[in-house]
Design a protein around this nucleic acid. Sequence first.
DNA 1: GAAGATTGAGTGTTCAATCTTT
DNA 2: AAAGATTGAACACTCAATCTTC
Lengths: 190, 190
Amino acid sequence: VTRATDSMPGAETFPVHTSDEIDDVVRFWRRENPDLDANTTALRLRLLSAARQLERVLRREMSVLEMEMWELDMLLSLRRAPDGARRAGELCRLARVTSGAITNRLVRLEERGWIRRDVDPADRRQVIVTLTPAGSQHADRIISIKSDAETSFFSGLPRSTVERLNTDLRDLLISLEAQSDPDQDARAAP
Amino acid sequence: VTRATDSMPGAETFPVHTSDEIDDVVRFWRRENPDLDANTTALRLRLLSAARQLERVLRREMSVLEMEMWELDMLLSLRRAPDGARRAGELCRLARVTSGAITNRLVRLEERGWIRRDVDPADRRQVIVTLTPAGSQHADRIISIKSDAETSFFSGLPRSTVERLNTDLRDLLISLEAQSDPDQDARAAP
DNA sequence: GAAGATTGAGTGTTCAATCTTT
DNA sequence: AAAGATTGAACACTCAATCTTC
């Protein structure tokens, strides 16, 4: 088997893994610890594996375009905002990273001159992030670059599968929001 | 509510994000740059968001059990092997990380006394990783711990969705294997 | 020269502690 | 006391270079 769809150079009939290694894991777990829901273990492994590989591929392809993925996402988040401004906390939730990560990103974007940080006069604990004119231009430039990176990553999948994955993962993310509403960061024991 | 199994209408009412923020991103992209396949952009965002959150939740829950996820996965990979041994390269492909990451993990596991690294006498470039008796015990102990972490992460999803995600992601991983066969690491220009 | 593993530098995240404002 | 943002340390990964072996 081994999906010999196209002519691969190293056509040495790969003896190992074929990703259904993970199915083996499931079978093993199910035998050793029947209490456990092995399906969710498999899903964890697949989700993390796919994400790691995606991140690696993306980083490679973006680096030749002289941009980084997080930068693209941040600028676009701001560019999409009605008035080109968002609060820092919003950006945390959007990108699903901790506030520390966002601060880090904001520092770098500010150094590059693409955003400005101002204290919210209404609630001085919050920070309002605004796209500078230069940042706005840069965002537009970035948008116009057609990066095939992610498209080619998923190109092995039929369109219907891509759509189904989208729907299912959206459901997952929505369900997570309901679950882990309370925290996100900050967990101090006084 | 929100159960938008299909097309997802404008259904405002949600004050913030609700993860269908990502659908907004799609609409925005599609308007700004129609050349781009916005569906794959959405899928990238969702895949990475879900993975990041999963990783964070898992780390938290595992830390109270005094173990790390990568450790569990590595020990189980070895435990599952017919003779309790695997080559380092195999472990790279299994975990979908670069060889540098595997070396790093192996160093730490060796320090803890749970594995041994030996040169393969048949091909002295390769390293054979073996579970020590202590490591084997530790793996068994770990297996017996019932960690609900991942199960609860996906608990908001109906069983059928979990299964569908599993098959779709498996297809993705298989397709990726076919694609990126040549490299994985090592990319030198002489 | 190519393949497998290792090293060290660089990157980007989480986490816990801290500061300010409410 | 709680919420939002920042800081710095710890962590774990990728990447490019290197070494050894084939």
